[in-house]
Design a protein around this nucleic acid. Structure first.
Length: 442
DNA sequence: CATGTACCTG
DNA sequence: CAGGTACATG
């Protein structure tokens, strides 16, 4: 027998954590060797190796496969994004007049560029009368910079022939403007979300721990006063380029930056990152408010919500995703998402807790989860890949509590009980915060 | 029976 | 992350 089969016999009996504990019988037929080999398998240093992996699949054997898996995953995600955005997912290679060759423009810039192109074109033609004036469009775009109805540059003969072409171009121009305006308006609303969050972070004092009543081996955590406001992490405060108000760098992000890098390449890296964010944002914006089902942006939002609530109620889900038709399928998909989020969260917690045990960490108090910690980095990467969201302090507290719960349980040997996680889940499920109001759609 | 949760798998 | 399974709950 290998550990896989041992674990398999346990599954289903840890299901709902509201169920009473005391299922010693499930250890029947499980030898001490099996239990310990299970523990060894669980405590591997290799990321993503699930603890129920069978013995045959050693950690060493898994490394290359993992790498391949990540690459495949990455490729998959990229292709999905591409398919959602059409050609706009990739920066477009164009050569605008008066600029360097092979300048790479991203969708947002592309729109702007097209707009300028059209504006120039139409200002050159401002003397020619165009028949069948579209009064509605005229009213909508009664901006002084918009094309006038005359164009002296074009000879009379050509004028008639070019008429339909001009109209087509006008329509295209309007479409571009519309796109641009829509994009701007929506990005403003997205910015509002992040700004609102920032304000709330600023207003709210850190939450203190009033919930600890049944901690087995460590005392109530002392609330540590946090700095009033993490100005460094908030680009809203320090940012110079106002065109990218969404970005809020986390301190954890810095960890990813190699220490030895020329300032030039750093600048380039920052520039590229900003570009990526612009792309992300326009894509985020354009796909929002879709009524056809859950989009990638809904997933992104759900992940951010996880920072506040690990066990969202259906009601909360409905409030936050009211822009989609709530069929049974959609509901269960959302629930499934959060289930997957929790799974990842708890797996990480267990992994890091076991690691701490192996490192002979003396007591639970020594285990902390700061923004600079590896655990936070992993979590942030999963739920907030672009690091453009300021993770609430409360989430770090919850992570720390979870980590300590796992650590203590493992130290006390509770993990030999197949239902040992149930108690932890019960504790963590009580630590949900309210989702900030800006997540709720009206 | 419908819903929610955990676990496993691909 | 989604599909499937087992189980609990109302």
């Amino acid at each position: 027998t290998h550990t896989g089969s041992v674990i398999a016999s346990f599954t289903g009996d840890c299901a709902a954590f509201s169920r009473d504990s005391g299922s010693d019988l499930f250890l029947e037929g499980c030898t001490a060797e099996q239990v310990s080999s299970f523990q060894l398998a669980s405590s591997g240093d290799v990321p993503d190796l699930y603890y129920s992996q069978s013995e045959e699949s050693s950690n060493v054997m898994h490394l290359p496969l993992q790498t391949l898996g990540r690459e495949a995953k990455r490729a998959r995600v990229e292709s999905i994004i591409k398919s959602m955005n059409g050609s706009e997912a990739n920066p477009q290679e164009i050569i605008p007049e008066g600029t360097n060759k092979n300048t790479t423009l991203y969708p947002y810039q592309m729109e702007m560029f097209k707009m300028h192109q059209h504006q120039n074109q139409y200002q050159r033609c401002k003397q020619v009368q165009i028949k069948n004036e579209d009064t509605m469009v005229k009213n909508l775009y009664a901006s002084p910079k918009l094309p006038q109805n005359t164009c002296m540059d074009i000879p009379h003969g050509v004028q008639q022939a070019n008429h339909s072409q001009q109209n087509a171009e006008r329509i295209k121009y309007m479409t571009d403007i519309l796109k641009c305006e829509l994009s701007k308006a929506l990005s403003t609303s997205v910015d509002t979300i992040f700004k609102a969050q920032t304000k709330q972070e600023r207003k709210k004092p850190p939450l203190y721990h009033q919930y600890y009543d049944s901690s087995p081996s460590y005392t109530q955590m002392t609330p540590v006063p946090l700095p009033a406001f993490q100005t460094e992490a908030l680009s809203l405060v320090v940012r110079k380029d106002k065109s990218v108000p969404i970005s809020q760098y986390c301190t954890g992000d810095q960890e990813l930056t190699p220490t030895k890098k020329s300032s030039k390449s750093l600048q380039k890296r920052d520039f590229e990152r900003e570009q990526r964010k612009i792309t992300d944002k326009s894509w985020y914006v354009l796909k929002e408010r879709s009524k056809e089902g859950l989009t990638t942006n809904h997933l992104k939002k759900a992940k951010l919500m996880f920072f506040y609530t690990r066990y969202p109620s259906s009601h909360v889900l409905k409030m936050c995703f009211s822009d989609v038709q709530f069929t049974r399928c959609i509901t269960s998909q959302l629930i499934k998402w959060f289930s997957n989020f929790r799974e990842f969260f708890y797996i990480q917690m267990e992994k890091f807790a076991r690691h701490a045990v192996l490192q002979r960490v003396t007591d639970a108090e020594a285990l902390t989860v700061g923004r600079e910690s590896e655990l936070f980095r992993v979590l942030n990467l999963h739920y907030n890949k672009t690091s453009d969201f300021q993770v609430p302090d409360r989430f770090l507290e919850v992570a720390e509590i979870t980590l300590r719960e796992f650590y203590v349980a493992i130290c006390l040997g509770k993990d030999q009980d197949p239902a040992w996680k149930k108690a932890i889940y019960r504790v963590i499920s009580k630590l949900d915060s309210d989702v900030p109001t800006h997540f709720i759609l009206t």
